Structure formats: structure tokens, C-alpha cells
Simulated scan of single mutants.
Amino acid sequence: MIMPNTPHDFILQLSGVHTHIGEYHILQGVDLQIPRGELFVLLGRNGAGKSTCLRTIMGLWKASQGRIQFKQQDIHTLATPDIARRGIAYVTENMGIFSALSVKENLSLAAINGAIDTSRLEWIFGFFPALKKFWNYPAGNLSGGQKQMVAIARAIIEPRELLLVDEPSKGLSPAIVHNLMDAFRELKASQTSIILVEQNFNFVRELGDQVAVMDDGRIVHHGQMQALAKDQDLQTRLLGLSMDSHQ
């Protein structure tokens, strides 16, 4: 007999979340439950509200209605730095790195508990060797893909309980995307929970445990990633295309 999930099985819960940005009503009653230690994929067409959902969780935009709980504690009224201190890291689509600072300085600023753990840094270098090569270079001088590596490395330079990651494979070469997949697998194995917004369907098909599809600020589908990956008709209905068209 399969037992139903309890609230303690979920690291993050969104209940009836609405977000207004000026006169625009972006999120319109979003309900999500993110299981502990899983990679949860958020899909949808451009403008569906995916990035707004991540930013609202992180407190960068405030929910105008509803409730957001992290480990059964309300966080929707907290400031972004306080949310980060609770163990949540966010990798934005535009990366948000400090261009004038070196790669080392960017990562050092993210080590909020003190000095960088050298063993964890070597683990990160294993996935992104270019960061070691350009360790003392200004981050603004790096390529787009290398800047993306800095942004991801900064988010995982310390252990986090939850990662919010927006379009991580954007601008990365296939080889680095493969390394990124390995990094996410190891993070999952360490019981790090991940919410991933991504347009590379083959990437998410390999990694995702559960998936939700957004449209017009609402969740219109929620299920197992493998079930969606196998159902081309459902993909076309929800996303306007099938994953096989991206191979």
C-alpha cells in the first residue's frame, strides 16, 4: 500500500500564491509541493510565470496573497537575505555575477559561513574546470557560458537544502551541460532539493523526478517527469511541441 505524503515529506510548499508586479497579475493561485531530495522541474512557455515563481519564493517579489512554507515555516513575509540564510540559494537566468570581481571573489562572497571549504571547491572544479583556470580573472571578462558556471558554483559553494535554478544550461557547451547534470545528480544524492526552470528538454528528462507545467500564471499539470517524457501528445497539448523535436 502506498502511503500518502505528509507535510514533512515536502521541503517547500506554495499554497494559493498570487504575485502582482505593478498592475500585472502574474501568479494566479499557484499551489506546489516540492519533495525533499528531489529535482522538481518547472516547465512552460515564455511568459508563463516560471521565473516569477522562483523570484517570489526567494522574496525578490512579494506574494500579494497565499502562503510559502520552507520546512513547515512561513517565509513569504521574510526579506531575501533572511530566506537565503535558511538554506535556499537562487541562480538567476541573467546570472547576476559581480563583473568587476574575480571568480575567487564572487565565490568568496557566497561563502556566508566563512572561508571557502577547499574540499568542496575542488569538487566544484571537477565539474567546472574553467573556474580553476580563471580563478583570479575578473568575472566580467569570461564568456557567457563561463559566467553561468560562476553563477552555479556560487550557489553551491556551501551546502544548501534547496536550490532554485533558472535556465542553468543556457549558453553552456554540451560537454559542460553533461558536467552540470552530474553535479545535479550528486546534489540530489546528498539530499539537496532542486527546483529547475529549464528549456533544454533532454536535460530535464534525464534529471527530473517530478514536473509541473505553468500557463498564464497557473499550474496546469503536475506529475512524474518520466510520464510526461513518454507522452508526446501531452507534451504537445501542454507545451506546444514534443520533447523529441529537441533531440
Results as ranks from 00 to 15, higher is better:
residue 181 M to K: 08
residue 183 A to Y: 02
residue 195 I to R: 01
residue 183 A to S: 02
residue 198 E to K: 02
residue 202 N to F: 09
residue 194 I to T: 07
residue 181 M to N: 09
residue 190 S to L: 13
residue 186 E to D: 13
residue 181 M to P: 09
residue 199 Q to E: 10
residue 186 E to Y: 09
residue 208 G to T: 00
residue 177 V to K: 05
residue 206 E to D: 13
residue 204 V to A: 04
residue 197 V to G: 13
residue 198 E to C: 03
residue 179 N to A: 06
residue 192 T to Y: 05
residue 199 Q to P: 06
residue 199 Q to N: 10
residue 189 A to T: 08
residue 197 V to E: 12
residue 182 D to N: 13
residue 182 D to S: 15
residue 192 T to I: 05
residue 184 F to M: 03
residue 205 R to T: 06
residue 180 L to E: 03
residue 191 Q to P: 14
residue 207 L to Q: 05
residue 199 Q to H: 11
residue 204 V to H: 01
residue 208 G to S: 01
residue 188 K to V: 03
residue 188 K to G: 02
residue 196 L to H: 05
residue 189 A to N: 14
residue 206 E to G: 06
residue 172 L to S: 08
residue 196 L to V: 08
residue 174 P to D: 15
residue 173 S to K: 06
residue 196 L to F: 05
residue 180 L to V: 02
residue 189 A to G: 13
residue 184 F to T: 00
residue 207 L to N: 04
residue 188 K to C: 03
residue 172 L to P: 09
residue 182 D to I: 13
residue 196 L to G: 10
residue 196 L to K: 06
residue 206 E to K: 07
residue 190 S to I: 10
residue 195 I to K: 01
residue 204 V to Q: 05
residue 203 F to K: 00
residue 189 A to E: 15
residue 203 F to R: 01
residue 178 H to N: 08
residue 197 V to Q: 12
residue 190 S to N: 12
residue 208 G to F: 01
residue 203 F to E: 05
residue 186 E to T: 14
residue 196 L to P: 09
residue 176 I to A: 12
residue 179 N to C: 06
residue 177 V to D: 07
residue 197 V to L: 10
residue 186 E to I: 13
residue 200 N to P: 00
residue 174 P to A: 12
residue 174 P to H: 12
residue 178 H to P: 01
residue 201 F to Q: 07
residue 193 S to H: 04
residue 202 N to A: 13
residue 198 E to T: 03
residue 176 I to D: 14
residue 192 T to A: 09
residue 203 F to W: 01
residue 196 L to S: 07
residue 172 L to Y: 12
residue 206 E to T: 11
residue 196 L to M: 09
residue 182 D to P: 11
residue 189 A to W: 10
residue 201 F to Y: 14
residue 203 F to P: 02
residue 175 A to N: 11
residue 207 L to V: 00
residue 181 M to V: 10
residue 208 G to P: 03
residue 200 N to V: 03
residue 194 I to A: 07
residue 191 Q to V: 11
residue 207 L to H: 01
residue 179 N to D: 09
residue 202 N to I: 09
residue 185 R to G: 12
residue 198 E to M: 03
residue 185 R to W: 07
residue 184 F to L: 05
residue 208 G to L: 02
residue 179 N to S: 10
residue 174 P to C: 14
residue 200 N to T: 03
residue 186 E to G: 11
residue 190 S to C: 12
residue 183 A to N: 00
residue 200 N to E: 06
residue 175 A to K: 08
residue 207 L to Y: 01
residue 194 I to G: 07
residue 192 T to Q: 07
residue 177 V to I: 11
residue 208 G to M: 02
residue 175 A to E: 13
residue 203 F to Y: 04
residue 204 V to K: 00
residue 201 F to D: 08
residue 190 S to T: 12
residue 197 V to C: 12
residue 177 V to F: 06
residue 174 P to V: 12
residue 184 F to R: 00
residue 191 Q to R: 14
residue 173 S to Q: 11
residue 184 F to S: 02
residue 201 F to A: 14
residue 185 R to C: 15
residue 193 S to G: 10
residue 195 I to Q: 01
residue 177 V to H: 04
residue 206 E to A: 13
residue 190 S to M: 15
residue 188 K to L: 04
residue 183 A to W: 00
residue 200 N to S: 05
residue 208 G to W: 01
residue 202 N to Q: 11
residue 190 S to F: 13
residue 180 L to F: 05
residue 178 H to S: 12
residue 200 N to Q: 04
residue 180 L to H: 00
residue 181 M to Y: 04
residue 182 D to Y: 12
residue 191 Q to D: 13
residue 189 A to P: 09
residue 195 I to Y: 02
residue 200 N to L: 04
residue 206 E to H: 09
residue 184 F to H: 00
residue 204 V to F: 04
residue 179 N to E: 11
